[in-house]
Amino acid sequence: MDEIRAHVQAALGEAGAHGLDHTLRVTSLCEEIGRAEEADMEILITAALFHDIARPLEKETGIPHEEEGARIAADYLRSRGWDERRVEAVAAAVRTHRYRSDRRPGGLEAQILSDADKLDAMGAVGIARTFLRAGEHGGGIPDGTEHIHEKLLNLRERIRTPAAREIAEQRHAFLEEFVGRLEGEMGADQPSAPLRK
């Protein structure tokens, strides 16, 4: 796994809304959820490490990062002699993790990766990443708040595994409290929709 981590780190860089720090948090969540759900940890952790490897390429190529990431992961693992069935399981998990994708995660490991990626967009870390992302795109607090309403507050309903649902409930409650306080402090001129339950 150290070799895979170094390979991913070289592609992603250290920080940012989708940098190595995000990948490592998702990997840690996969470890926690995977143990509880009795997943194949080698497939799961490998997929977690690779899940956003193609993020930096997406802007340049226009290829969705989950598609290119699945290809990169599969090529890398084949070059290391992995069994084709396991290669395909990792690639399928990477290919189906994205919130905006029409593809749904099928196997347990794919579901856990999808859940872990969504969990890292919830709670305190999710809030921090939202405003970091807004800044990376030249936006401000209203842009971040809008993103919370459009995406983050909807993530709880897309969590699939029981262990992840427990974490999601706590993080969702924190999100609701934060948005309520933020909008209260910013006043009536805040250009975002009211908090939706």
Rank of each mutant, 00 (worst) to 15 (best):
I4F: 05
I4S: 03
I4G: 08
I4K: 11
I4P: 04
H7Y: 11
V8D: 03
A11S: 15
G13Q: 01
A15D: 13
H18L: 08
G19T: 04
L20Y: 02
D21M: 06
T23P: 09
T23Q: 08
L24N: 07
L24K: 06
R25L: 10
T27K: 07
S28N: 09
L29H: 06
C30T: 01
E37T: 00
A39S: 04
D40F: 04
M41Y: 04
E42Y: 08
L44F: 03
L44C: 01
A47T: 08
L49R: 03
F50M: 11
H51W: 03
H51M: 08
A54W: 08
P56L: 05
L57G: 01
K59F: 12
K59T: 15
K59S: 09
T61Y: 03
T61E: 09
G62R: 07
P64F: 13
H65K: 09
H65S: 00
E67W: 11
E67R: 14
E67T: 15
E68I: 11
G69D: 03
R71H: 01
R71S: 02
I72W: 05
A73F: 07
A74P: 00
Y76F: 07
L77E: 00
L77I: 00
R78M: 09
S79T: 04
W82N: 11
D83M: 09
E84F: 04
E84H: 07
R86Q: 11
E88V: 02
V90D: 00
V90F: 07
A92E: 12
A92Q: 10
A93E: 02
T96H: 01
R98Q: 10
R98L: 01
R100N: 13
R104W: 04
P105W: 02
P105S: 04
G107K: 03
E109K: 05
A110M: 00
A110W: 00
Q111N: 08
I112M: 01
L113M: 06
L113D: 00
S114K: 08
D115Y: 07
A116I: 12
D117N: 06
D117G: 02
A121R: 13
M122C: 10
G123R: 07
V125K: 13
I127P: 11
A128D: 06
F131H: 00
A134W: 09
G135I: 11
E136Q: 11
H137G: 12
P142K: 02
D143F: 06
D143S: 12
G144M: 06
G144R: 08
I148K: 05
H149R: 13
H149F: 04
L152S: 12
L152H: 14
N154K: 15
L155Q: 03
E157D: 06
E157K: 10
I159Q: 04
T161M: 00
T161R: 15
T161L: 03
A164Y: 06
R165V: 07
E166T: 10
E166V: 09
E169F: 15
Q170R: 15
R171Q: 13
R171H: 14
H172A: 10
A173W: 04
L175Q: 10
E177I: 10
F178E: 05
F178G: 09
G180Q: 12
G180A: 06
R181K: 14
R181V: 12
L182G: 06
G187R: 04
G187Q: 10
Q190C: 15
L195S: 01
R196S: 13
K197T: 07
